[in-house]
Design a protein around this nucleic acid. Sequence first.
DNA 1: ATGTTTCCACCTAGGTGAAAACTT
DNA 2: AAGTTTTCACCTAGGTGGAAACAT
Lengths: 199, 199
Amino acid sequence: VEFLEKQGDVLKIELCQSELWHAFHTLGTEMIITKTGRRMFPAVRIRISGLKKTARYKVSMDFIPVDKNKYRYVYHSSRWMVSGVGDSIKQNQTYEHPESPMTGEYMTSQVISFEKIKLTNHEKPSTGQISLLSMQKFQPRIMIQEKGSSCTSDSQITVTFPQTSFIAVTAYQNQEITRLKIARNPFAKGFREAGKCSS
Amino acid sequence: VEFLEKQGDVLKIELCQSELWHAFHTLGTEMIITKTGRRMFPAVRIRISGLKKTARYKVSMDFIPVDKNKYRYVYHSSRWMVSGVGDSIKQNQTYEHPESPMTGEYMTSQVISFEKIKLTNHEKPSTGQISLLSMQKFQPRIMIQEKGSSCTSDSQITVTFPQTSFIAVTAYQNQEITRLKIARNPFAKGFREAGKCSS
DNA sequence: ATGTTTCCACCTAGGTGAAAACTT
DNA sequence: AAGTTTTCACCTAGGTGGAAACAT
């Protein structure tokens, strides 16, 4: 395949912090969306190997609806239930990685992080933001497209990691999710984990 | 010239905040260099027009010695005096703009800022840093090179703004410079300008 | 003496969840 | 009742000059 550095090579795309993602996914990941836009935590980070060193690739991300449902969280049973039929997401929204296009050499030499993307419920998302719908389930999707090559279908690769799917919310529903966010996100420290005394 | 969008166009490169630069230049600009690297203030920021929209340009900056002198600041006369012959700067140091290469369209649509560059006196500058020599005078130089074009000499343009020259120091010498840095750099506020009371 | 290094208080900039206020 | 918006205290991250310690 022309995507690869040489015949016989294997294109490998790996999700970073997969234990962290797994911990959230087990509880049912929620991502806050706000009018001004909110980062994802965890952020989608990937490692790639097997690209052509000198080729240039466009790297982008979008979000596909996992199903047509709208959900609500039932507190007493601590479960998400289907509450109706969801709305349609605003189409053709793509977040291009700030450093895109990148050379294959650069891309394979370091982690590619989508930490700067912001999720919003604003109808008109500004640059760097993606508009989603509250109480619906989404799956991040990463696209890697070789630039300057002929527009054949094999010059683009699309990857999804199922454990990165989440329900968009305007406020956290599951308190376990809140706890995990506070425990793992350095920016979220409303309460200090133990004693703030001494020292 | 192939550098331009179309025959008859004028390539225009303008220094931003030229009043600010002028204020510093009048006093004799000093830039701190440290082992860990220090940003420039003011930062070099430019506006460009007249580039080919779809062409891609490599944008970089380096520093050329203004003269062969080493200077010292004489406090009682508030003047810089030549104190001897300077050393030779480490050669072939170039800072490539983080967003380089950029398309002509992108470059002409916004200010191109070199605010993230760091100046150091470390012998082995790390990425994003430029190693300079204390008590010597330097002139920032900007290079814009069209990529993918034939390697003819007219595909590169080099610009210098004389008012951006400075003396590299490990500590400020002229107190007027210190005062101006504090007054204009939002990060430098050792003392509040007026009353910190009320409210 | 003169120049350099280290450490630090003080700032900007901006990412968090909590809680209250608001909407429907 | 259920979901959204606003505001805010608290945090990370990192850019400043000052002052003291250090080097030569």
